[in-house]
């Protein structure tokens, strides 16, 4: 997870992430004297590069002190510090992600109330009635309206999802993500139909696709339906 995050920061793509992935790839991870034997550039140059990067973190209260790692390799205290920092960063990130989710839910509730005047129906039962009744005026530019969204869950919850998978049952994190995405997509559908004189959207269909990509999973929702005015 941490590696995932780091590899996404352009600053680290060149030096830190490449070096780290090479370290992990090498068989002698723990033998600090052998870590650098894979090098393309010399060991000193690598150390210098990493020291520069570690130096960037020196001023951040709890993230400094990794220059010791470069001098003496892994030790128990460095490993404990690494775990502690990962937990602190994880907690901060989890809080930000939680806050953003809460903000999104508030937005959804507010927007749903605003768009209440357009009803969305999935039922095909009275479809022929809708289609044939001349009372249902056909409006809009094309007749079919669509809404879509691509939403991703946060990287910090990957851990809680992994834990939830061990025990089975509901994975609430995904349930919430899909719920939010569908609500957002329906809001977009209504926004598409808004201002076209539409009061009902009938025969609504929904598509869900999961995006294939590295890192946190993202879902793609498309909803569409035919707008009529009754």
């Amino acid at each position: 997870m941490l590696l995932d995050i780091l590899s996404n920061i352009p600053l680290f793509v060149d030096g830190f992430a490449n070096a780290l992935s090479d370290i992990w790839a090498s068989s002698n991870i723990w033998a600090s004297s052998d870590i650098w034997s894979w090098n393309v550039i010399s060991r000193d140059e690598k150390v210098e590069k990493l020291r520069e990067i570690a130096g960037l973190f020196e001023n951040i209260p709890f993230m400094g002190g990794y220059q010791d790692l470069l001098d003496n390799g892994w030790s128990l205290s460095v490993a404990l510090k690494f775990i502690r920092d990962a937990v602190i960063l994880g907690a901060i990130g989890w809080f930000i992600a939680w806050w953003l989710e809460r903000k999104h839910l508030k937005y959804l509730t507010a927007r749903e109330a605003e768009l209440k005047h357009i009803t969305v129906e999935a039922g095909p039962k009275e479809l022929s009635e809708v289609a044939q009744s001349s009372a249902n005026m056909f409006t809009g530019m094309s007749g079919m309206f669509t809404g879509s969204v691509v939403l991703s869950h946060d990287g910090f919850r990957s851990i809680t999802i992994a834990i939830a998978k061990i025990f089975g049952g509901n994975i609430k994190q995904y349930e919430r993500l899909l719920d939010r995405a569908r609500r957002q997509a329906i809001i977009r559908l209504k926004e598409d139909a808004e201002g076209q004189g539409v009061t009902r959207i009938v025969n609504m269909k929904m598509l869900t696709t999961s995006i294939t990509r590295k890192g946190p999973k993202a879902v793609e929702i498309v909803v569409y339906g035919t707008g009529v005015a009754s």
Partner: peptide
């Protein structure tokens, strides 16, 4: 755009690049 989406998904939320892609594609 892919890198931006990767960054964005640290905290979760809408991946605007992919959303736009979907709208254009549709």
């Amino acid at each position: 755009r892919d890198i931006a989406a990767g960054l964005k998904s640290i905290f979760g939320g809408e991946l605007k690049g992919y959303s736009e892609l979907l709208v254009e594609g549709r």
